[in-house]
Design a protein around this nucleic acid. Structure first.
Lengths: 250, 250
DNA sequence: ACCTGAACACCGTTCAAGT
DNA sequence: ACCTGAACACCGTTCAAGT
């Protein structure tokens, strides 16, 4: 934004009922969608709506309140995008659910900025929508044999993991740094044996497709053991959970 | 900050060699440490150092560059705080490592803001320090029998999970919202059977002590299976990895 | 009841000097 | 070579009006 914000002649005064909260919300959503959430400022929004800046404050007490309302809409949109098939076993369901979870937010940066990057700022309505969706997942896990608590923990850990991956990827993309240490960067540093040997296939951002898949699969593997432990024969359980002695490092 | 920033008489001009990059860095670090990273602004920093605002720009091209340098220092501090005992089996080591990882950042908000919340903005030097630390962990995993790739994936997933938990917790704390839906909030909403039944023990922030522990333990459980699969008898492996046929969705 | 511009207290950064 | 204030283009928000 290099040119001054306002150069044209002053606007005509608008009629009394010519603005609405919905119109402002839509304008804000469109502006953020077309450019970015960072680009959304009260003056820019007012300009786009051809409205005095201060008029917005009659409908939204603060920018924060506007963002919260935008998040509500975003949550509804996210919810609509998250229709997962019901014909899946619990592990396939979880894999599909969180893969889609990640993909939806990766495809729609605004949803990611509003919901993932601003967690904790959910309105009651947004929370209600999210809770409804989470309940569906928990229900499936319980149906598969998990206790309510285990299901809640399972969901929480996968949700935290997925949102963590999204957060890191988005933060990484936002920084204009040059790919952070080009391939082979550790080639000359002494002592980085393992890192050097895998640096062709692993990126330090830890945010790649393969990375995410591994963590998701690994967590599901852990859950599988957790679930089976309640029903499997003693010998297998013992073999599965007993950790080999020794093998301790320096 | 309700009182105007400057009200006292103008400063005397400072001598030629009276400022240094180190002094500015230290001042910035102290200011952010005492208040918060959000409270660190160029004018506030200049005021604290009793220096003209623009003087800072002779030593740091931008605020971003200053933050990057602060992050370098923070990374060194974090590294010092992360001395994990070597007398641990790989799974105990991972548990201790990432528990400590989380605790250090939870105890020191500035470290968290600089390193976790601004990932992707690491300088080469900060990256070097981090790589060194990661290499140590990978080395232990490899010594325990993991392949280099598996070790890298394992580290990445646990790191993403832990940083995700830190990010969410910090974001949650930053929002001034009232605990987000008090306990019993779902009591009247129809259809939230599971959520209602566990809401005494589970918080929607998914960021509690128990939540983190479960995810960490579950991931380690997954890794244990992964590691054992390479060495265990065929029958157990089959029972462990074979997925029941059918039941696959679209 | 709704819409408004001017004004306030901030930002980060640049410029054209000063010494 | 270093330090500087004034100025610029922004913010979000408040106030005292206007209609």
């Amino acid at each position: 934004v290099s040119t001054p914000l306002r150069k044209s002649a002053p606007r005509k005064r608008r009629a009394r009922g010519s603005i609405s909260a919905d119109e402002i919300l839509q304008g804000a959503y469109d502006l953020a969608s077309e450019e970015s959430l960072d680009a959304l400022s009260m003056p820019r929004l007012a300009q786009r709506l051809d409205v005095g800046v201060t008029s917005i404050y009659w409908y939204f007490r603060s920018k924060e309140e506007l963002l919260d309302t935008m998040t509500e809409r975003a949550m509804a949109e996210f919810d609509r995008a998250m229709e997962i098939s019901g014909d899946l076993r619990w592990d396939d369901y979880l894999r599909t659910y969180f893969t889609e979870f990640r993909e939806v937010f990766r495809r729609n940066g605004l949803l990611c900025d509003l919901i993932v990057m601003r967690t904790g700022n959910l309105t009651d309505e947004a929370t209600r929508i999210a809770a409804q969706r989470i309940e569906t997942v928990l229900g499936r896990l319980v149906a598969a044999g998990f206790s309510g608590d285990s299901a809640a923990y399972a969901y929480a850990s996968l949700s935290v993991y997925t949102r963590g991956a999204l957060f890191l990827e988005r933060n990484w993309a936002a920084s204009a740094r040059p790919a952070v240490m080009a391939p082979g960067a550790f080639g000359d540093t002494p002592g980085l044996t393992v890192l050097t040997s895998v640096q062709e296939r692993h990126h330090l951002s830890m945010t790649g497709e393969e990375d995410f898949r591994f963590g998701l699969e690994n967590a599901i593997r852990g859950l599988r053991v957790l679930l089976e432990d309640d029903t499997a024969e003693p010998c297998i359980v013992a073999a599965r959970t007993a950790a080999p002695a020794g093998l301790v490092g320096p």
